[in-house]
């Protein structure tokens, strides 16, 4: 059976797995973005806190994903829970780092003039600094998304949702004719999702970035 034939035959599966994959990654990205931006906002003005946060969120990335999933297995059980938590941890660094870079890159003269006009700390952050740092932040979120799409596939080791299931099933049947098709369809599924997410990001970035700073 050819690969395309295989895909057509498994179209329903592909769609279902794709949605599950996208949902768990999407949820992880949203949580990682909220946490990451918050961490960035809290620490960007203090050198020590900044360095500590970057070191910590960076250290998560050094844990092999395979190991992390299995470590989270005992506290969280099988299924989407350990996958979601692991993805959030892996997704923090690009968001935090870009948030800090973006906020620190805002022209001090702009901040000073905002201050001089009587915008308080919160108003400055929400109306001036975050909107100006936004293009950099969203780039970080985009990187996070791509990284997480790949890692999520490994989540099938703990029965996580998504295309990983196809890949691991293929792995179990190495040597049979269907194995290659299974692994390939899982990989292609992830790639298609990556392209779709990127398109969404492109649209979101355009819609949420002021024309004045494009």
């Amino acid at each position: 059976m050819g690969f395309l034939e295989f895909l057509v035959k498994r179209a329903d599966d592909m769609l279902e797995l794709g949605i599950a994959h996208a949902v768990v990654v999407g949820a992880a990205v949203i949580i990682a973005t909220v946490l990451g931006v918050a961490l960035g906002v809290l620490t960007y003005r203090h050198e020590r806190a900044r360095d500590l946060t970057l070191a910590l969120t960076g250290s998560f990335l050094t844990i092999p994903s395979f190991a992390l999933f299995i470590l989270l297995l005992s506290p969280l059980g099988l299924g989407w829970r350990p996958v979601l938590l692991a993805l959030v941890l892996y997704g923090l660094l690009p968001v935090v780092r870009n948030t800090i870079t973006g906020l620190r890159g805002v022209d001090p003269a702009i901040i000073e003039s905002a201050k001089g006009m009587g915008l308080n700390r919160r108003q400055r952050l929400l109306r001036i600094e975050l909107p100006l740092a936004w293009p950099v932040i969203i780039t970080g979120v985009r990187v996070t998304t791509l990284v997480l799409l790949g890692i999520a596939a490994i989540g099938a080791i703990v029965n996580g949702p998504g295309y990983g299931e196809l890949i691991f099933t293929g792995l179990a049947r190495v040597g049979t004719p269907v194995a290659v098709n299974l692994v390939l369809s899982g990989a292609v599924g992830v790639m298609i999702l990556a392209v779709l997410f990127d398109l969404i990001f492109y649209a979101v970035q355009r819609l949420t970035t002021s024309r004045g700073i494009r």
Partner: peptide, 11 residues
């Protein structure tokens, strides 16, 4: 308050 670098909000 007016400064040399103007500091208009670019966005």
């Amino acid at each position: 308050y007016v400064i040399q670098q103007v500091g208009l909000f670019p966005h």
